[in-house]
Design a protein around this nucleic acid. Sequence first.
DNA 1: CCGTTATTTAACTAATACGTTAAATATGCA
DNA 2: TGCATATTTAACGTATTAGTTAAATAACGG
Lengths: 111, 111
Amino acid sequence: MATDRLSRIFGALADPTRRAILARLSEGEATVNELAKPFSISLPAVSRHLKVLEAAGLISRSRSAQWRTSRLEAAPLREVTFYMEKYRRFWDESLNRLEQHLELLQDEDKP
Amino acid sequence: MATDRLSRIFGALADPTRRAILARLSEGEATVNELAKPFSISLPAVSRHLKVLEAAGLISRSRSAQWRTSRLEAAPLREVTFYMEKYRRFWDESLNRLEQHLELLQDEDKP
DNA sequence: CCGTTATTTAACTAATACGTTAAATATGCA
DNA sequence: TGCATATTTAACGTATTAGTTAAATAACGG
């Protein structure tokens, strides 16, 4: 994975464990132990996934006593959606319908 | 990167060279040589990036004489956008405005 | 058939990713 | 202080990634 921000974000999203962690965090903040519970991997492994997510800006973390709670951060998700926008014309259903319509119009010009 | 489809897609998007290739393909089909031209990496390297993109379903390829042309494929882009949808409430501006509005309403109940 | 052009495969290297277990660190509390 | 709990860091193994150069393959055109 490269070092630019978009690459870090996509790279972070490329792992199913990390996506599951994000899904969990979409329901509310959680500690490392809570996040680790559903997985069969060790705590240090989860700790590192969190570090990757944090480096991508997808989560922020705060300490309260011996617990470190993670919370989902909006900005990178917004960034990805904006990135996808420039490809929307390739898949947007209504636009495809428009294109088909235009093709039909062209066909009408032909014999 | 894991082996499920979404991971393959995000993994493919995690490389800036591959994103640049997709951007180029959004302007139309292109051969391997054409795609390689803007980059300072070797042809085999580009060939492999194309294989990664193809495995993710982000491009399809056809052969015509000795040229292999690549074209952008819509489905995975749609899939990513749909995936992002479930996080939209975390960053959608208008929703934030709604939330602020609700907070204001709550504040009005207070002294 | 031969030479040229386009592309891929093979073989290799270096860096990164992801997991492990063991040890270190941080904090709360008796 | 000292133990318990939560989390991170260290040290390590292995797989994957991304690049290289050299050789192989594919298809055209004389």
